[in-house]
């Protein structure tokens, strides 16, 4: 039996799994179509040769690996870009927040220089106690620097050393050449004078 367009539509919806109330004729036609596909199912399938599947598999694996490689490269580049952007933002923020700041790596002498500046140029506005402390610090630093710089013996050091050597030699000479009595100890003198 052949059907009208509307009947075919109802049968199609029925074959797709919808609940449709079919007439006997429509039901018979639906069964005929279903049977036709069942008959074809015995003949239509065609298994692929193993080498065809293997070839497809090789190309598939290569494509997935290539895609993963691209994705990794993209990810690394994105992270690097984000890091660079973050550094730029941080530098910008620091400049905005501290416009007088010398930069990201401040040398150690800068605080001293700032204090000296404050002492010399703005004595009125600077806190007096802080200025005194700063002067103290500067003085200490200068003294420390002097001591640290004096690493080799000075002329004065040399003179003192010579004097010490002469003194040592004098006492040694006296002991060896003269039989001069050695001064008695304080306890011995007390015994001799009868006070002990």
């Amino acid at each position: 039996m052949d059907a009208t367009e509307q009947q075919y539509e109802r049968i199609a919806r029925y074959l797709d799994g919808e609940t449709v109330d079919l007439t006997d004729g429509e039901r018979a036609l639906a069964a005929e179509i279903r049977q036709g596909f069942t008959a074809l199912a015995d003949h239509l399938p065609a298994a692929p040769p193993v080498e065809s599947t293997d070839r497809a598999r090789r190309r598939l694996v290569a494509a997935v690996a290539g895609r993963l490689r691209l994705r990794s490269i993209g990810r690394v580049m994105a992270v690097a870009g984000m890091a660079a952007a973050a550094v730029l933002v941080l530098i910008g923020a620091q400049r905005l927040w501290m416009p007088d700041a010398p930069g990201p790596i401040a040398p150690s002498y800068v605080p001293t220089a700032v204090m000296r500046d404050a002492i010399e140029n703005e004595p009125d506005t600077f806190d007096v106690e802080l200025a005194l402390i700063a002067e103290d610090v500067l003085q200490q630093q200068a003294e420390f620097a002097d001591v640290a710089q004096a690493s080799k013996p000075t002329v004065l050091d040399g003179g003192l050393q010579d004097l010490q050597e002469e003194l040592d030699t004098f006492w040694l000479d006296e002991q060896q050449t003269d039989s001069v009595e050695q001064p008695a100890s304080f306890e011995a003198l007390l015994i001799e004078s009868g006070q002990g």
């Binding site: 059907a3 075919y8 049968i11 199609a12 005929e32 179509i33 596909f37 008959a39 074809l40």
Partner: peptide, 18 residues
Amino acid sequence: CPLGTALAKVHRGIKQLR
């Protein structure tokens, strides 16, 4: 194409194949 037309074609095709 309309649903009815699609099934009509399939039906005719199956009959022709047989």
